[in-house]
């Protein structure tokens, strides 16, 4: 670009010549080895030009916008999220496949048989506007299925994949998938049994995405934006919007904290996936966890009267039990008693 770097060329340069010279400006604004070497040498050899060079450089550096508009972090993230989502919607509706996921090459189709679990510390949804995308010429329809507390359902998607949708959860999926991708949007928790095929299956959780080719997994999303992915077998990839990417191996669980930090650990599969087979599992669970699990499982409101000792925790496993039996079980092994009044459960000691 700057072919004529002949020092002679600049010999008679005046202020306006420096100010209109791209090579000079490049050195002032963004010096690199070459430009620095050139201009330092040139100034040494043309000492009488030093002052005008300095004036020009000062002027160039001083030009700035009068108004600064910094993109706030929330806006930065919000727009980013919308881009990723807009993208998913668009891809889901697009007829021509796009070359999207390099991980096609990372996993061979055969090796994938995975179970993921995402569990959240809360069950409240934050209401992200994720409306059904409008497909004008495309007949793809987006279907939203919502389970309130106490309700669990099983759905079968067009590709044969099955989804166990947990209580207090919502899933949005197309009536048929596009040629290139299978994507669904989840809030809350679900267990997926994904039919194995070449189109990637993507679960959009807002903050992160899970990608698989064919497998079983479980996913959810809460207001607190803490999420967990637990893998039983196979391999999966989790991407967050900051560009972080984590691969999971069987029996590994990924936790993404509210601040976006990733942590890998081991997990108990009964505790994590048990719900889909009607197992209500408490493992060293603190009171808020016990409360929210019971509330969601039985669609009741749980209240605690009195105080529990510090470090109170409950461990127990109930298979397809009634509310009374669960409460009886808790009563037997911990100091908590209960009263049931319609949809209200009072725990006390």
């Amino acid at each position: 670009m700057f072919q004529d770097k002949d020092p002679i060329k600049f010999k008679d340069y005046q202020l306006e010549d420096f100010l209109t010279d791209e090579f000079f400006i490049q050195w002032v604004k963004n010096p690199n080895e070459n430009t620095t070497h050139f201009w330092e040498k040139w100034i040494d050899a043309n000492a009488h030009k030093k002052e005008v060079v300095m004036q020009a450089a000062t002027f160039i550096r001083s030009i700035d916008y009068q108004e600064k508009h910094l993109m706030k972090n929330e806006i930065y993230l919000e727009v980013f999220e919308k881009i990723i989502r807009g993208d998913l919607k668009q891809v889901a509706q697009k007829k021509n496949p796009l070359i999207l996921f390099s991980w096609n090459s990372i996993f061979s189709l055969r090796n994938i048989a995975a179970i993921f679990i995402l569990t959240f510390c809360g069950w409240i949804f934050y209401t992200v506007a994720f409306e059904k995308p409008i497909a004008k010429e495309d007949p793809i329809q987006w279907i939203t299925k919502i389970n309130t507390a106490g309700i669990k359902t099983v759905l079968t998607l067009e590709d044969g994949s099955r989804i166990h949708l947990n209580s207090s959860s919502k899933i949005t999926y197309p009536n048929r998938f596009s040629d290139s991708i299978r994507s669904v949007v989840l809030e809350g928790e679900a267990f997926f049994d994904v039919a194995e095929e070449s189109r990637p299956f993507i679960v959009d959780l807002g903050k992160a995405q899970i990608e698989v080719l064919g497998t079983s997994f479980n996913a959810s999303k809460s207001s607190e934006e803490k999420l967990e992915v637990a893998l039983i077998s196979g391999k999966v990839k989790v991407n967050d919007h900051k560009g972080n990417q984590v691969m999971l191996l069987p029996s590994e669980m990924l936790t993404i904290a509210e601040d976006g930090e990733f942590q890998k650990s081991k997990f108990d599969s009964l505790e994590i996936t048990g719900w889909k087979d009607k197992n209500l599992v408490f493992k060293n669970a603190d009171f808020p966890t016990v409360k929210s699990k019971i509330e969601n499982w039985f669609d009741v409101e749980v209240k605690l009267s009195g105080r529990l000792r510090k470090n109170w925790a409950y461990t127990g496993n109930f298979h397809d039990e009634t509310l009374i039996n669960v409460l009886e079980g808790i009563k037997h092994t911990s100091e908590i008693k209960y009263r049931i009044n319609g949809k209200k459960v009072e725990l006390y000691n």
């Binding site: 809360g122 967990e228 900051k242 669980m253 936790t255 890998k264 650990s265 493992k283």
Partner: peptide, 22 residues
């Protein structure tokens, strides 16, 4: 609401920092 105290044996921290990408 807090998550079950499901402690890991040895947590591995994986964070591909943005600086890395830059």
């Amino acid at each position: 609401m807090s998550i079950n105290p499901r402690k890991s044996n040895e947590p591995t921290h994986i964070t591909l920092h943005s600086q890395e990408i830059v």
